[in-house]
Amino acid sequence: MRTLAALLLLWLALAVPARADELRPGYIEFAEQAPGQWSLAWKRPYLQPPPEPPPPPILPDNCTYQGEVRQGAAGGAVLGRADVRCTGAVAGKTLGVADLIGQTDLLARVIPLDAPAQAIRITAATPQATIAAEEIRPPVWRTYFVIGVEHILEGWDHLLFVIALVLLLRSWRQAVIAATAFTVAHSITLAGASLGWLAMPQRPVEVLIALSIVFLAVEIARRDPARPSLAMRLPWVVAFLFGLLHGFGFAGALAEIGLPDDALVPALVAFNLGVEAGQLLVVGVTLAAIAALTRVASARLEPAMRLASYGIGITGAYWLVDRLAG
């Protein structure tokens, strides 16, 4: 019990500083404005401010920076912009960074004038990636599926919502149905926002997402199977309604990364499938932990769940106040 409590408190302590949609999307956008003239923009999130500004992205070997490289820090990330001059085609050349300073990867979007846009994944293992030739299609499905999985696993608020839902229900069937309803709902608003059909300011979305976590924490603390609350009687309805809000949060983070114009629908579908896969993984791990605790020390299950509800509630309340004040 003490070990479980210590691990839970440590995890919550690490989660507290997180902002909404902690996918912490990092990206590089390399867009051709006129033949040979390119604009370069980048965002490199960090957990701790770097001691000195990181070097700008590494350009293809036939490209050079033109004029001033503008770079600064804001909102937990290094932001930069520059003009670039390239001689000849960039297909077959490499684009990347010297190192990654806090995020697991970056998504580079290369947008030539005379070829389809493409997405290139830059990781610690491959900090420089090759720009595909025009006839080679980028792996849109794989790229955005992985981004979806990472979003639910690294997006602290969405992750905490799913965990809280499982702690409330404690049933494989109910948890999977509720998680799927959550996915269906956020898929609706995510698609609507990404296609420009729906819109909601990000500040209210962030506040309401934090409120949804506080709501579930209270439901866990006052859980009584003899007198089930609405969230226990109709968990899929609650998950669906809150999922509509979380979808706008997903859209805000995904908008920063960007979607390929020529493969928008496949990218959206792959992203949502990735989110669902990540959610089911979280559901499975959380239920397995509950089952293990029940077998080893069933008398300590309820105190552990109450402790978890307090930790989740405190974290959600912190985010709520922080987002209202910010």
Rank of each mutant, 00 (worst) to 15 (best):
R203W: 14
H186E: 05
P201Y: 00
V205W: 03
A129Y: 00
E206Y: 11
I152E: 12
R137V: 12
L168A: 09
W156T: 13
L198P: 01
L198H: 05
G155Q: 09
L198N: 02
A185L: 04
P204C: 09
H151K: 00
W156S: 11
I136P: 09
F161E: 07
R170P: 06
A178F: 08
A132I: 04
I177G: 11
L165Y: 05
G148H: 06
L190I: 04
A133K: 13
H186V: 03
L198W: 09
I122T: 10
G196V: 07
E135S: 14
L153D: 12
I136E: 15
E150C: 04
T180L: 06
E154C: 11
R170V: 08
E154V: 08
T180A: 08
A199L: 12
A178G: 00
L168G: 07
A164G: 15
W156N: 12
E134L: 13
V149H: 05
A133S: 12
E206D: 11
Q202Y: 12
A178I: 05
E206Q: 15
G196R: 05
I188Q: 01
H158M: 01
W172Q: 09
P204G: 04
V162Q: 08
V184N: 03
L160T: 13
L169K: 04
T183D: 02
G148W: 13
I136K: 14
L165C: 03
Q174D: 11
Y144I: 11
A129K: 01
I120N: 06
P139T: 07
L153N: 13
V146Q: 10
V176I: 15
R170Y: 04
E134Q: 14
Q174T: 09
L198I: 08
V140T: 13
T183Q: 06
L160P: 03
E135D: 15
A191Y: 10
T189K: 01
V146A: 11
T143S: 14
Q174R: 13
D157T: 02
V176W: 05
A175V: 07
L153S: 03
M200N: 12
F145I: 10
Y144E: 04
A129W: 06
H151Q: 05
V140R: 02
A133D: 15
L159K: 05
T130R: 13
H158P: 03
A181V: 00
L153Y: 08
P138R: 13
R142D: 15
A199V: 11
S187H: 02
T183M: 08
T130A: 10
W156M: 14
W172K: 13
R173S: 10
Q174C: 12
I131K: 01
W197I: 02
I131Y: 07
E150R: 10
P139D: 06
A193V: 08
A129N: 02
G155C: 02
T143V: 08
L160D: 08
V162R: 04
T126P: 05
W156K: 08
Q174A: 15
F145Y: 13
G196L: 04
A129D: 01
Q128I: 06
A124D: 13
T143G: 10
W141T: 13
T123S: 03
L190C: 00
A193E: 10
L165E: 07
T123D: 02
P201G: 13
G192M: 06
V184Y: 04
H151N: 06
